[in-house]
Design a protein around this nucleic acid. Structure first.
Lengths: 119, 119
DNA sequence: GTCGAAGTTCGACGGTTACCGTACCAAAAG
DNA sequence: CTTTTGGTACGGTAACCGTCGAACTTCGAC
């Protein structure tokens, strides 16, 4: 879908703070893999390499998920040599949708502890 | 998809409180139509007839959206004559995912006022 | 009993998504 | 320079999603 950002889709910064759309964020965080990525990103609080996430999908699929998260404004990325570093846009998200990211990630953490390996 | 509720899929109550899954709720609320329904349901605070919502989709589509919301545990429904009444499961949602529904609907309300008739 | 209103079910269609493997590229290591 | 490593781009596929219209059901009104 069209994202209202004025910059190129290859830009690693994603949409501007005011361009972040709720439906896009909700959709980005409605996938278990992406939810897990966001959660891991929050716990470490820092930038992280793409390959350092515990996910059960192939590399190209992971690239896809990172793009969805980035274009929704959930994360931003930065190139560092051969590594691509991702960071959660907690501040922007919180400015635009106060409490949302926190509630979602807390809910995820709770469900994760409640059902560790949900069958 | 399989919902872990023990009852029939035609049950208008939806999943039990502890069966509500975060990803399902997020997905249910990632659609503008459903988000609008949930928002209207919250503002009125009461039960509401299916046909009384201001949405730009046909009847059968509306039925589909209500089912998604119900099976995710966002709303529950009740038959009253020919009318089907829907109610937001605020209490269950809040017990399972504290602050989530509130943050989402507040975010939606904010975006709605910020861009009244988003073209 | 008949008609209309409120919703559901069914089938279909077009667009999107999640996934994969392969090929590719750029930077670092040898 | 060659190889390895980290990751993207490009198809391609199968499933899903949002939408619709038409047919059906059920209740209430006449």
């Amino acid at each position: 879908m069209e994202c209202a950002v004025s910059e190129d889709a290859h830009d690693l910064r994603g949409p501007g703070r005011d361009e972040i759309e709720l439906a896009a964020v909700m959709h980005a965080l409605s996938d278990p893999v992406r939810l897990g990525i966001a959660a891991e990103l929050r716990t470490c609080g820092e930038e992280r390499r793409c390959g350092s996430f515990e996910v059960a999908v192939g590399k190209s699929t992971l690239t896809h998920h990172f793009r969805v998260l980035r274009e929704a404004g959930v994360i931003c990325q930065r190139q560092d040599g051969t590594a691509r570093l991702s960071r959660l846009r907690s501040d922007d998200l919180d400015a635009r949708f106060p409490g949302l990211l926190d509630a979602v990630l807390r809910a995820h953490a709770d469900s994760a502890t409640a059902r560790p390996a949900a069958a």
